[in-house]
Amino acid sequence: MVQLNISLFFKKLKYRCDVLGGVIVNKNKCLYCGACVAVCPVSAIELIDTWIEINEDCNDCGICAKICPVGALEELK
Protein backbone atom coordinates (compact mmCIF):
# COMPACT_ATOMS: atom_id res chain seq x y z
CA MET A 1 0.00 0.00 0.00
CA VAL A 2 2.77 2.41 0.94
CA GLN A 3 4.70 1.42 -2.13
CA LEU A 4 1.68 1.97 -4.31
CA ASN A 5 1.15 5.42 -2.87
CA ILE A 6 4.75 6.34 -3.49
CA SER A 7 4.51 5.20 -7.06
CA LEU A 8 1.30 7.16 -7.47
CA PHE A 9 2.99 10.20 -6.05
CA PHE A 10 5.85 10.02 -8.53
CA LYS A 11 3.56 9.40 -11.47
CA LYS A 12 1.59 12.41 -10.41
CA LEU A 13 4.72 14.53 -10.33
CA LYS A 14 5.94 13.17 -13.61
CA TYR A 15 2.77 13.75 -15.58
CA ARG A 16 1.36 16.69 -13.64
CA CYS A 17 -1.97 15.03 -13.77
CA ASP A 18 -4.72 13.69 -11.60
CA VAL A 19 -4.77 10.25 -10.10
CA LEU A 20 -8.29 8.94 -10.31
CA GLY A 21 -9.40 5.37 -9.82
CA GLY A 22 -7.13 2.90 -11.58
CA VAL A 23 -6.39 5.21 -14.47
CA ILE A 24 -4.26 8.32 -14.78
CA VAL A 25 -5.61 11.21 -16.79
CA ASN A 26 -2.94 13.29 -18.39
CA LYS A 27 -4.59 16.68 -18.60
CA ASN A 28 -1.89 17.93 -20.95
CA LYS A 29 -2.98 15.37 -23.50
CA CYS A 30 -6.72 15.09 -22.91
CA LEU A 31 -8.86 16.92 -25.47
CA TYR A 32 -12.08 16.08 -23.58
CA CYS A 33 -13.82 14.26 -26.44
CA GLY A 34 -15.72 11.76 -24.29
CA ALA A 35 -14.79 8.62 -26.23
CA CYS A 36 -13.66 7.03 -22.94
CA VAL A 37 -17.07 7.74 -21.39
CA ALA A 38 -18.81 5.86 -24.21
CA VAL A 39 -16.83 2.65 -23.74
CA CYS A 40 -16.59 2.49 -19.95
CA PRO A 41 -18.48 -0.69 -19.00
CA VAL A 42 -19.14 0.47 -15.44
CA SER A 43 -20.06 4.06 -16.26
CA ALA A 44 -17.28 5.37 -14.04
CA ILE A 45 -16.20 8.23 -16.30
CA GLU A 46 -17.89 11.54 -16.84
CA LEU A 47 -16.98 14.35 -19.22
CA ILE A 48 -17.52 17.66 -17.46
CA ASP A 49 -17.02 20.60 -19.79
CA THR A 50 -13.28 20.45 -20.46
CA TRP A 51 -12.12 17.70 -18.15
CA ILE A 52 -13.00 14.13 -17.34
CA GLU A 53 -13.62 12.64 -13.94
CA ILE A 54 -13.29 8.98 -13.00
CA ASN A 55 -15.06 7.74 -9.90
CA GLU A 56 -14.40 4.83 -7.55
CA ASP A 57 -16.50 2.44 -9.64
CA CYS A 58 -13.52 2.10 -12.01
CA ASN A 59 -12.58 -1.58 -12.19
CA ASP A 60 -9.24 -1.08 -13.97
CA CYS A 61 -10.38 -2.79 -17.18
CA GLY A 62 -8.23 -0.46 -19.27
CA ILE A 63 -10.64 -0.14 -22.20
CA CYS A 64 -10.68 3.66 -21.91
CA ALA A 65 -6.89 3.78 -22.21
CA LYS A 66 -7.01 1.71 -25.38
CA ILE A 67 -9.73 3.83 -26.94
CA CYS A 68 -8.39 7.30 -26.16
CA PRO A 69 -7.52 9.04 -29.47
CA VAL A 70 -4.50 10.78 -27.96
CA GLY A 71 -3.31 8.41 -25.25
CA ALA A 72 -4.32 10.69 -22.39
CA LEU A 73 -5.38 7.80 -20.18
CA GLU A 74 -2.88 5.48 -18.63
CA GLU A 75 -3.51 2.41 -16.56
CA LEU A 76 -1.83 2.17 -13.17
CA LYS A 77 -0.15 -1.20 -13.19
Binding site: V37, A38, V39
Partner: peptide, 24 residues
Protein backbone atom coordinates in the same frame (compact mmCIF):
# COMPACT_ATOMS: atom_id res chain seq x y z
CA UNK B 1 -21.30 9.98 -27.80
CA UNK B 2 -20.54 10.45 -24.08
CA UNK B 3 -24.24 10.07 -23.22
CA UNK B 4 -25.12 9.37 -19.61
CA UNK B 5 -28.84 10.05 -19.82
CA UNK B 6 -29.61 6.63 -21.31
CA UNK B 7 -27.54 4.80 -18.72
CA UNK B 8 -29.13 6.73 -15.88
CA UNK B 9 -32.50 5.61 -17.22
CA UNK B 10 -31.39 1.98 -17.35
CA UNK B 11 -30.67 1.76 -21.09
CA UNK B 12 -27.28 0.25 -21.77
CA UNK B 13 -25.53 2.43 -24.34
CA UNK B 14 -21.99 1.28 -23.57
CA UNK B 15 -20.00 0.75 -26.75
CA UNK B 16 -17.78 -2.28 -27.24
CA UNK B 17 -14.30 -1.39 -28.55
CA UNK B 18 -15.19 -2.85 -31.96
CA UNK B 19 -18.28 -0.65 -32.08
CA UNK B 20 -16.49 2.68 -31.79
CA UNK B 21 -14.23 4.44 -34.26
CA UNK B 22 -11.67 6.49 -32.39
CA UNK B 23 -10.72 9.53 -34.42
CA UNK B 24 -8.30 12.43 -34.68
Amino acid sequence: VESKVGRWAGINTTLKPKDIETCA
